[in-house]
Design a protein around this nucleic acid. Sequence first.
DNA 1: CTGAAAGCGCTTACAG
DNA 2: CTGAAAGCGCTTACAG
Lengths: 351, 351
Amino acid sequence: MPVVHDTRTKKLTIHDIARMASVSAGTVSRVINDQPGVGEQTRARIKAIIEEQGYQASFFARNLLARRSFAVGLVFSTAPSELFSHPVYPQLMGGIGDALGAASYTLTLITVPADEREERVLREVADGRLDGVILPDIRSGDTIVDALRDLETPTVLIGHRDAHSDTAWVDCDHDHAIAELTRHLIAVGHTHIGLVNGPEEFSACALRAAGYRAALTDAGLTPRQEQPGSFSAEHGYRATLNLIDLPLAERPTAIVAASDVIAVGCIEAARSRGLRVPDDLAVTGFDDTMLARYSHPPLTTVSVPLTDMGHMAVHILFSIMQDKQARPRTMVLPGEVIVRPSSGVSRRLLQ
Amino acid sequence: MPVVHDTRTKKLTIHDIARMASVSAGTVSRVINDQPGVGEQTRARIKAIIEEQGYQASFFARNLLARRSFAVGLVFSTAPSELFSHPVYPQLMGGIGDALGAASYTLTLITVPADEREERVLREVADGRLDGVILPDIRSGDTIVDALRDLETPTVLIGHRDAHSDTAWVDCDHDHAIAELTRHLIAVGHTHIGLVNGPEEFSACALRAAGYRAALTDAGLTPRQEQPGSFSAEHGYRATLNLIDLPLAERPTAIVAASDVIAVGCIEAARSRGLRVPDDLAVTGFDDTMLARYSHPPLTTVSVPLTDMGHMAVHILFSIMQDKQARPRTMVLPGEVIVRPSSGVSRRLLQ
DNA sequence: CTGAAAGCGCTTACAG
DNA sequence: CTGAAAGCGCTTACAG
């Protein structure tokens, strides 16, 4: 009858296992780590005891020697309520968590007010808790990126392209995707197309504006960008009213919104003025969230490959952790234009 | 001119600081931990050096002694795509992260396929990486809860009430909230009210069904529950068609859906049969997600206090970590009924 | 193939 | 008030 260790009293150490197997701790260590230099017989006997006792080597003791945490921090600022009206994070976390878990790495989620973020992250890096950092919530001017670079902490941004430095990032091709969206509206017959953008401190929004302008200019049309604002339906509502209230000759017949939430506000504004969507005003979104699928009418939008972006962010982070100079350190994944009723059918057909 | 240690070459240890201050490591340790027994002069000098050098004591070395990780695992199964169509998790994580961060605890996010979840979590508990576990994704029959109890791992469930054991949980009062919602529909003049429920393995769904039945029975009306299904618009769509196609005398004039997503499917089904919402069919949702706010018509629904639930889960977890027998270990927070157009105005007024 | 010993970076009685 | 030493639970040269 096997002597089952009472797990309630004390935790087993490597010395307990060594004693049970009548070997030294070093030998047990070699077995745990699948290292050579242990006889077949001995190895089997030790393995059996480990299994039987449910022994697990202490994570911290191992890390103390390895001088690594095998943990990556995923950092979000909690303050802006925009975080929660931005329903893409669960899927992103899934992608990051999968890739990290597959490599036996731990995902440390850090949600912290924006004004405490830098201090908190730098401290956790300094005390050895974090081997690397993934930042999906960065806008231009955030000093945390520079601080992490100075410490030579492996870092990857998601959804923001850092132009000034060599910091790694993974992003979606916002510009190309929204250009394609805009060309779709042009092809369908629109000549007056407005843009309701999000905050331009996000490089994603700057890119969306650029893609929108490029598509119009290429077609010989005039961009008509509204003031950028927050990722909110309220912003979409107000900006759209401004556009609708323009003189008839300038009034857009289609609006490209920088997010699904903004687009929903645009639709509300149109409705409040008695305009039908898409017949009187076409509207498109971005993100392909549930809102896009279930709003009325359903939104033409751009689907962002969040799971893949999470995977790639981890992939690049690992390569940098292995070699600080590793290349490539940036990656652009394609968004997919999803056509739904909100952009209407061909206006030429309607005439 | 201060001797600035080159952080690039090697990490500072407590001995480096001790040497710089010409004291022993023990004295530095006492300063770091704000313990008494160090002279004012010495303490100030050591503090200055620590500050100047940017020294941070190794997290792992400290934890090895403390035999605690100061980390809590938040576990999600990634397999069911329902996770991502359930847009309440970001807010829940915010609440949990806040509370954990305030206590200088780390949040370890574990996203793992359902069939590997138990093994993974138990291993991370066994190797000392996790001091406690929060499970927001549990349904009845999940064996992980029993396994964690056997190991005496501090555990708190969110959104699921474990009836068989003493496991701690935090939940919303699904039954009361949905009873109130149902009474609202009754007050407005409905007598035939159907329920389109989610998966009944979630105690939340069982509770919602119970609340719905209680409200109807109390009013002398007959419950008419559809088969439960997934938290999807497709389920809402199909189930609603079944109800609409009933003989006129049995056909409901209002539907209580177990989630906003389901409710959106219900509305689509009504529309596909040429019924107007809410005039011909009233529909209510649950969760108060963005869908509820922006669907057409906007949904009457129940707002769930996710941030507070996250806070309370951490609070209870901490109390259990301090004392395994701590009470109370369950907590019910109130949901709030939010009335929007989808439930219509008084039918009596219409007649 | 196996063991004894030193060491990872801290903390904590125990002396003085 | 301060230091020297032992120890947390592992791993890793170094002997044999």
